[in-house]
Design a protein around this nucleic acid. Structure first.
Length: 896
DNA sequence: GGAACTACGT
């Protein structure tokens, strides 16, 4: 049947079409399957080979590739030879039409040729690579007998396109060993791989070969060499080469600028950007994009935005890179609305977003949990037919999961054409976050059977999920299973997720235990570890732990990070080592406003008002602008120093001089200032004239003042306001009930007490913790059984108590947080004092105690007495204040 | 055969 349709030349007329010798060079006995499908194909008798080629080319252009193959087959059947150029054209057509099936058919036929033209084989390699079958390309390449520079270039180019950087470099060495020298087209590809793979050694080698003249050098090659040094962070080498280049173009400058941007040295980058213009080299689109992306990434969105406008005034239109960089910069800064506006503007001016743009925008919506903006992005992705992109799919899953719409997240996950580890982790993370650990675990099990098995992030997500669900055992269990099941190692984030999980579940000791185990198993803590664990140690009984962690952080060079050092300033202060805070502060260069504020509030906490005010002076001399926090501390410092006028002045300066909006912290600091100096009426008047509604800490400041200055009537007034704002607060109820009693309002007092009983809430029992010999001992009021040396303690306290009485001048009526002591119920801090001082043959220099309630006057007097009589400093932080007792005085100056 | 510099996610 076929024979009738295809008119075969009866006698080959051209020597190239006939097997010139009896050994038919290009004859094959290949399949005629393609022929069977080629009913429409006709071929003119006695066609000239060029005409055959023209006909084949036409078929290729129309996409009728199988028909073209059929013609080849018919030629072969009559024993005709196919010219290499014909094969090459057909292969190129397969590349153009992305037609791997026909490509394979051609491969079969080429394989039948006895001595294949190396150019045809090279084209075959390209065909497989460009149709996305790198492995088949490599197979052809490996089996080739003769490989020239073109062949190597095709293979290396294929690996480069497929981002197989390691293979690129390996092939390059292989090529050199085969005695083939690269040209100036191949070298940039190899150098690019060196840059991506941070292979500075190969980069240097090529550099030296180029200098010695063994290889071609061109502007492209020189730029590529420059780029390797820049990417590997060797900026001094890069600069040297740059200066010596006899010819530079815009890319040369771009490379240098990129190098500095990657190191975060934006000032240097900017310098080069300016310098290139001075030398008459106009920055190109890419140059602008590099600089804009860098500013944007470093959080300087506004500078980036200015640059974008400036670039337009230079006549360069922002492209998708520019817009995407800006959008992602604003997103990372949390300026989501601006990111969204940018996306809209971009669409308006007609720049097509790509998958990265859409993914950035989706992650912006995820970060603010905005489903409405998110679904807008979703519809853009649908309209631009990008929903099937895996990156977009993943970011949409994340967006819906974070926004709480797990159904939408799940349905995207379900219809995805392909899934990677991000897809799984996003959906699992979504279920964990929402508290559906069971569902997450189910997916986690399925994932292990999938093409993308869990990675360490998956495990960490699961651990965090169980921790948030309060299932610490399961979280710990998962952690222990990582290595066994996953064939992967727990990383620092795995450890961090355990630590932060225990802390979230208020298990400080377990968190610290994990931290210790972490160091024991040689896992280096990172910045996150330190910043997570430190708040667990910011109390007086953990003072040693702060030092321990500081040592550890110093060894790991984490303290070079300003946020870490600033946290140590704060932690040292809160754990009672203000001198260490100062040391850390003095060692910092540069410091930021948080460094100053941390030390300032440390001084205030310790009642070191003079030091605080000195520091404030220094700060102003250094030209620093105080922040909201600074001024709160400063007013507190003035009130501690009883410098009321200065405090008032600072307060009025907040909005006038410093242009800072007053907030409730400032107002309560002012009430504290006025109240402390006994100006109760002024304090009340101040509250009543506040332009904003006072909150409970404003009233608490007044209540404290009333307690100390014994204005019980006003105490009732303040207490009632506090109770209005927080009706369940048991401590307020307790204080108020006492104030009623003192004022003779026994009916109200009884009502208060009745309320307490009805709600079945009790005042917390007084508790104190003291650290002795690396152990923390707990003392609870009324729990005498657990107290060591009870008799000794009681007799010691009795003796001390008598001495204290002799020193007390004022024992009138008071309102106190804790119930009055009676026989058999001694306040917990006194037990701690006694324990600290009788258990040793020598008196310890410092006692460090933490207490859950506010100290009473009597215990405060006792501590003052002990500090004088025993020459022992006592640091005690109660629920409200850090007291430092020394030589018979307290840092709070008896106002707390 | 065909090159150098730019944006993204758990």
């Amino acid at each position: 049947m076929e024979k009738n349709l295809i008119i075969l030349p009866s006698k080959p007329w051209h020597p190239l079409l006939i097997p010139s010798h009896s050994s038919t060079q290009l004859e094959w006995h290949g399949s005629t399957r393609a022929l069977a499908n080629s009913n429409s194909v006709s071929m003119t008798q006695r066609s000239h080979p060029k005409l055959v080629d023209t006909q084949l080319n036409q078929l290729c252009a129309n996409g009728s590739l199988s028909e073209a193959v059929a013609i080849l087959d018919s030629l072969a059947q009559q024993g005709s030879k196919v010219r290499p150029i014909t094969f090459m054209n057909l292969l190129q057509a397969c590349i153009d039409k992305d037609c791997i099936l026909v490509g394979r058919e051609l491969h079969t036929r080429i394989g039948l040729v006895r001595k294949v033209n190396p150019f045809v084989e090279t084209k075959l390699v390209s065909m497989y690579a460009k149709c996305g079958h790198l492995d088949e390309a490599r197979k052809v390449f490996d089996e080739m007998r003769e490989r020239n520079l073109f062949t190597w270039s095709a293979m290396i180019g294929a690996c480069s396109r497929d981002l197989k950087w390691e293979e690129v470099v390996e092939l390059f060495y292989d090529m050199m060993q085969h005695g083939v020298l690269p040209d100036d087209f191949l070298l940039p590809k190899v150098l690019k791989a060196c840059g991506k793979f941070r292979d500075i050694e190969t980069g240097r080698l090529i550099h030296s070969l180029v200098i010695r003249g063994g290889m071609c050098s061109s502007l492209h090659v020189n730029n590529s060499i420059l780029a390797v040094y820049a990417k590997c962070g060797e900026m001094s080498c890069a600069e040297k080469i740059f200066r010596r280049m006899d010819e530079r173009n815009c890319v040369s400058w771009n490379v240098i600028i990129t190098g500095y941007c990657q190191r975060g040295e934006i000032e240097q980058a900017q310098k080069y950007f300016d310098a290139m213009q001075e030398e008459g080299m106009e920055p190109g689109l890419v140059t602008w994009n590099i600089l804009i992306a860098s500013y944007s990434q470093l959080g300087h969105c506004d500078i980036a935005m200015d640059l974008m406008r400036k670039m337009e005034s230079f006549g360069i239109t922002p492209d998708v890179y520019t817009w995407t960089s800006m959008i992602s910069g604003f997103t990372q800064k949390g300026r989501i609305n601006e990111a969204f506006d940018l996306l809209r503007d971009m669409l308006i001016v007609g720049v097509e977003p790509n998958s990265i743009t859409i993914a950035s925008a989706a992650s912006a919506c995820a970060s603010v949990k905005s489903l409405s903006m998110g679904s807008e992005i979703h519809s853009i992705a649908v309209k631009t037919s990008m929903v099937d992109d895996i990156l977009i799919g993943n970011s949409l899953i994340d967006m819906y999961a974070k926004g709480g719409d797990l159904e939408a997240a799940q349905s995207i996950f379900d219809v995805m054409l392909e899934r990677d580890v991000y897809s799984w982790n996003s959906i699992i993370g979504g279920y964990c976050q929402a508290g559906f650990c069971g569902k997450a675990h189910e997916l986690f099990m399925k994932m292990q059977e999938s093409d993308s098995p869990p990675n360490v992030v998956t495990w960490n997500v699961m651990i965090t999920g169980f921790m948030q669900n309060g299932d610490e055992d399961e979280a710990l269990n998962l952690f222990l299973r990582i290595e066994k099941d996953g064939k992967i190692k727990p990383n620092v984030a795995s450890w961090n997720s355990l630590i932060s999980g225990f802390l979230q579940n208020r298990q400080k000791d377990k968190a610290l235990q994990i931290f210790r185990q972490m160091q024991f198993s040689n896992m280096a803590p990172n910045l996150v570890t330190v910043l997570t664990i430190l708040p667990a140690c910011t109390n007086l009984v953990a003072a040693k732990k702060v030092k321990e962690i500081h040592c550890c952080a110093t060894r790991r060079n984490l303290v070079s990070e300003l946020s870490v050092s600033n946290t140590f300033i704060d932690s040292y202060a809160k754990s009672g080592n203000i001198m260490y805070s100062r040391k850390v502060f003095d060692g910092l260069s540069p410091k930021d406003i948080i460094s100053w504020n941390s030390l300032l509030s440390g001084y205030v906490l310790h009642g070191c008002s003079e030091s605080a005010l000195d520091l404030f002076d220094q700060m102003r001399k250094d030209g620093l602008h105080p922040s909201r926090v600074t001024l709160t501390s400063i007013i507190s410092a003035y009130s501690h120093a009883e410098m009321v006028d200065e405090g008032k002045h600072a307060f009025s300066n907040i909005s006038e001089e410093y242009q800072i909006r007053l907030d409730l912290e400032h107002y309560s600091a002012m009430v504290y200032l006025l109240g402390r100096s006994g100006k109760l009426a002024k304090a009340l008047e101040f509250i009543q004239n506040m332009p904003v509604e006072p909150n409970s800490s404003v009233w608490a400041a007044l209540l404290t003042a009333c307690r100390i200055h014994k204005n019980f009537g006003m105490a009732i007034f303040a207490g009632e306001h506090m109770l209005e704002l927080d009706p369940e607060n048991i401590i307020t109820q307790h204080l108020l009930s006492q104030a009623y009693s003192v004022c003779g309002k026994s009916w109200e007092a009884q009502k208060m007490t009745k309320l307490e009983k009805e709600k079945f809430v009790k005042m917390p029992v007084g508790q104190s913790w003291i650290e002795m010999n690396n152990m923390v001992h707990t003392f609870v009021v009324g729990d005498d059984q657990s107290i060591p040396y009870l008799d000794k303690i009681h007799s010691w306290l009795k003796r001390v108590g008598e001495n204290v009485k002799a020193h007390i001048s004022d024992n009138g009526l008071r309102i106190e947080e804790e119930e009055k002591e009676n026989i058999g119920s001694v306040h917990s801090e006194k037990l701690a004092f006694a324990f600290g001082l009788i258990d040793f043959h020598h008196t310890p220099q410092i006692l460090r105690i933490v207490k859950n309630l506010r100290m009473c006057r009597d215990c405060h007097d006792t501590a003052k007495y002990i500090s004088l009589a025993y020459g022992c400093e006592i640091y005690l932080s109660d629920s409200n204040c850090l007291h430092h007792f020394k030589d018979g005085h307290c840092s709070c100056r008896d106002y707390w």
